[in-house]
Amino acid sequence: MDDSNGHAAGNYEAILREAGVRITRPRRTILAILADGEDHPGALEIFRRAAAIDPAISLSTVYRTMKLLEEKGAIQRHVFEGGPSRFEQAVGRHHDHLIDVDTGDVVEFRSDRIERLQEEIARELGYELVSHRLELYARRRKAD
């Protein structure tokens, strides 16, 4: 179950096992959804997808599993303006996000120009950039 970022559900299982967490059938379902996903689902969306596969899954299991994976650095939590927490895999090349304010869609993008400019700004201010997150909030332009 590898996704395009090279992370597999088995890797999530290994991370949880190392944390002393038992891998139950509901957790295995949640991990498979995360490994197969290419979007930025919230906990309720993960729960909805998991419950369609296994109705015995509880929302609290989803929340606990996401919290553990976040603590272990396997996933990243994003809180985009005006919305619930959403998650994505913590592997792969750095990218930024554009959030459609009308639909809530999240578009990943990378711009070498923006990356260089951020480094330059930090350097001019006497800093070394160690981390950053860029979120753009936008609306589709209407056709002319």
Rank of each mutant, 00 (worst) to 15 (best):
67 K>E: 12
110 R>K: 09
37 G>K: 04
75 I>L: 09
20 G>N: 00
109 F>S: 03
58 S>F: 00
36 D>Y: 06
95 H>A: 11
101 V>I: 14
24 T>S: 15
121 I>K: 10
78 H>I: 01
67 K>D: 12
65 T>I: 11
59 L>S: 08
122 A>G: 07
90 A>F: 03
55 P>T: 03
97 H>V: 01
69 L>D: 01
42 G>Y: 01
22 R>Y: 06
23 I>F: 02
83 G>L: 10
54 D>M: 10
91 V>I: 08
71 E>F: 00
81 E>C: 02
12 Y>T: 04
6 G>W: 06
88 E>A: 09
23 I>D: 07
90 A>V: 09
125 L>R: 14
10 G>H: 11
17 R>F: 05
32 A>T: 15
116 R>C: 03
80 F>S: 09
138 A>V: 06
43 A>Q: 08
57 I>K: 07
103 T>L: 05
129 L>S: 02
11 N>M: 13
52 A>H: 00
59 L>W: 06
55 P>V: 03
24 T>Y: 05
106 V>G: 04
3 D>T: 12
119 E>C: 05
11 N>W: 09
113 R>T: 12
92 G>T: 09
80 F>Y: 14
124 E>I: 00
141 R>T: 07
20 G>I: 02
21 V>L: 04
21 V>P: 00
64 R>I: 03
79 V>L: 08
122 A>K: 02
66 M>R: 05
29 T>C: 03
104 G>N: 07
99 I>Q: 05
5 N>P: 00
115 E>T: 11
107 V>S: 12
27 R>M: 12
107 V>D: 13
38 E>R: 07
118 Q>G: 11
126 G>M: 05
117 L>V: 14
25 R>S: 06
74 A>N: 03
72 K>E: 13
45 E>Y: 09
95 H>Y: 11
107 V>I: 15
79 V>E: 13
29 T>W: 00
88 E>Y: 01
127 Y>C: 07
43 A>N: 04
133 R>G: 02
56 A>L: 05
99 I>H: 03
61 T>C: 08
1 M>W: 10
64 R>Y: 02
50 A>P: 12
127 Y>K: 10
3 D>R: 13
28 R>H: 09
120 E>K: 09
105 D>R: 10
57 I>T: 14
136 L>M: 14
98 L>Y: 02
55 P>S: 05
103 T>S: 15
107 V>C: 11
98 L>S: 13
80 F>I: 06
12 Y>F: 15
100 D>G: 10
138 A>T: 02
39 D>I: 01
56 A>S: 15
107 V>R: 14
126 G>R: 08
78 H>D: 05
126 G>W: 04
53 I>E: 15
15 I>F: 00
57 I>S: 03
30 I>D: 06
99 I>S: 04
7 H>V: 14
39 D>E: 13
128 E>S: 12
50 A>E: 04
134 L>E: 02
116 R>A: 13
72 K>S: 12
61 T>Q: 14
83 G>S: 14
121 I>F: 12
137 Y>E: 04
118 Q>M: 07
89 Q>E: 09
97 H>E: 02
142 K>N: 06
40 H>R: 04
95 H>L: 07
120 E>M: 08
67 K>R: 15
130 V>D: 01
